[in-house]
Structures are given as C-alpha cells and as structure tokens.
C-alpha cells in the first residue's frame, strides 16, 4: 500500500474499516466504564467483616433508595494498597491498627472511629486424625497449619503469638485473608488454622475450636474511616456505630471496642 492508492483499492477495504470501527467502539465502552459514576457509594471492607456488612447494608439502602452501594471485600492490606494506588472509596472498614495508620498517613481520610475488636482462636479440621488440644500438639511435625499473611492483621497477630510462646509457625501456609484460612481448614486441606473468633463461630458446627492460653489477650481493632462528610457517609457511620450494629457484632463473636 502507498499514498497513491487507486479509488478501486480504497473501496475494496471495508473489512479494515469495520475493524477500525469495532476497535473504536470497544475503546469508547472501555473509557466510559472507567469513569467514576455519580450516585454510587463505595465501601471497602476487610474480609473478616463480610457477614457484618452484609447484614448492615440494607439499613443504608433503606435510607437512600436511589444510591447504589458497591462493596469491595479484601484483606485489609490489599484494600489500603488499592486506595494508595488511586482506587476511590467513600468509606473504609479495616481490621488492624497498623493498616489504618498506613491509610491515614498515605491518604486524606478522616480520623477513624473504632467499632469492634476481635481476637484469634485456633480451629482444627474435623478430618484430622490426630488429637490436637494444646500448643505442643500444634508442634507435631505431621500437622499442616495455615495462618494469614503477615500483611493482614490476622497474620500479624498469629506471628506475634508465635514469638511470645515460641510456637513455631514457619511451616504454615500464608493465606491472603482469614476466609481463605478458614476455607482450607473446612476442606480438610490443612489440619489447623489461626482465625478470628468471629469466623470460628460462623463455622462452629464444622470445625473444632481450641483455646490456647494467652491467645485471647492479643486483639485487633476494627475501625471505620470516611473520605468526606456528606450526608450518606455520615449516615453510614451512624449505622455502623448504632445499637443494632453493636448487637450484630456481638452475635457474630466480635468484642466491644
């Protein structure tokens, strides 16, 4: 092909034009979908708060029927990363003080409000052949354990516990979030896992919970931070700090802030 194309040649290239048209169409759709839209309230939620937020969100929807609420659930560390890299959130519900500190230092969120605390417990798979009741049982080399990654508060707590008690957790698999640890225990892929008390309670019928001395002294806190103080954000904060929220949290196994 060159600049002196004959008219005959031009009329014979509908496929090329069609391809251009399809490409442009795709590009427009893509760009359109990337824009932040009005009338959407976006909440980033730590994965251990999944059940809680699912119960509380209808309250918000009842107050603001025209607003679409989007929920992004992930490990707290991931959520803070996403926001640091430019994801927009109207409200953030995080586990762990350190992740909230990172959020506060990296971004322009308002000071956090604490709504609950949680503590770790050990769940044991019902399919494990061995007797597991104490710390020394966990040291049994034939057992496979799971904890959260260090970046997640559940992982940080487990590792803190291992340091204070000399429990060796180096052979455990590090899961991105607490739900993934629990799932592995439930499926019998690992023998035990360090999960939040709240998560252990959810699965109480399928796994056995053992209490290790001193583990309940280590807690992590949950807090909410808002990006701005518009009407819906304040209502959201109000709902999460209200009486119904407190009762729900207690039912789910969380501790008071």
């Amino acid at each position: 092909m060159n600049e002196t194309m004959s008219p005959m040649r031009k009329t014979r290239e509908p496929t090329v034009h069609r391809a251009y048209a399809i490409f442009l169409l795709c590009a427009c759709v893509l760009l359109g979908s990337c824009r932040t839209s009005e009338g959407v309230f976006t909440v980033f939620v730590a994965s251990s708060m999944t059940e809680f937020i699912n119960i509380m969100l209808p309250e918000l929807a009842a107050e603001f029927p025209d607003v679409q609420v989007q929920v992004n659930i992930a490990g707290s560390g991931t959520l803070v990363n996403q926001i640091a890299e430019g994801a927009t959130a109207d409200a953030v519900l995080l586990a762990g003080a350190s992740q909230m500190d990172r959020l506060q230092s990296d971004t322009a969120f308002q000071p956090p409000v604490s709504i609950a605390r949680n503590t770790l417990t050990v769940v044991v798979s019902s399919e494990t052949h061995r007797e597991v009741n104490t710390i020394s049982d966990l040291q049994n080399s034939g057992l496979q354990g799971a904890i959260c990654v260090r970046g997640a508060p559940c992982g940080a707590l487990a590792l803190e516990f291992s340091e204070t008690t000399n429990l060796d957790l180096s052979g455990t698999t590090r899961e991105p979030n607490v739900k993934s640890v629990l799932a592995k225990v439930l499926r019998g892929e690992v023998d035990y896992g360090f999960v939040y008390r709240s998560d252990a309670r959810l699965a109480a019928s399928e796994v056995r919970t053992i209490d290790l001395e001193g583990l309940d002294l280590l807690t992590t806190s949950y807090s909410v931070a808002l990006a701005n103080s518009d009407e819906i954000s304040l209502s959201f904060l109000e709902i999460l700090t209200g009486r119904k929220a407190a009762m729900t949290l207690e039912d789910l196994g969380f501790l008071k802030p």
Binding site: N81, A146, V149, R150, G151, T173, R174, E175, P176, V190
Partner: peptide, 22 residues
C-alpha cells in the same frame, strides 16, 4: 499454599510483600 522457604515462589512473595513492604 504459601509457605515461606518451602512453597513461596517469587510471584507469591511479591504478592505478600505488596501489603507489607512494597
């Protein structure tokens, strides 16, 4: 799984470090 020193490959280590030490 994701066991440091045993099954934690480089991509997994990158993924974990993204949240603690970027």
């Amino acid at each position: 799984g994701n066991i440091p020193g045993k099954t934690q490959t480089l991509p997994l280590a990158v993924f974990v470090a993204m949240e603690t030490d970027q």
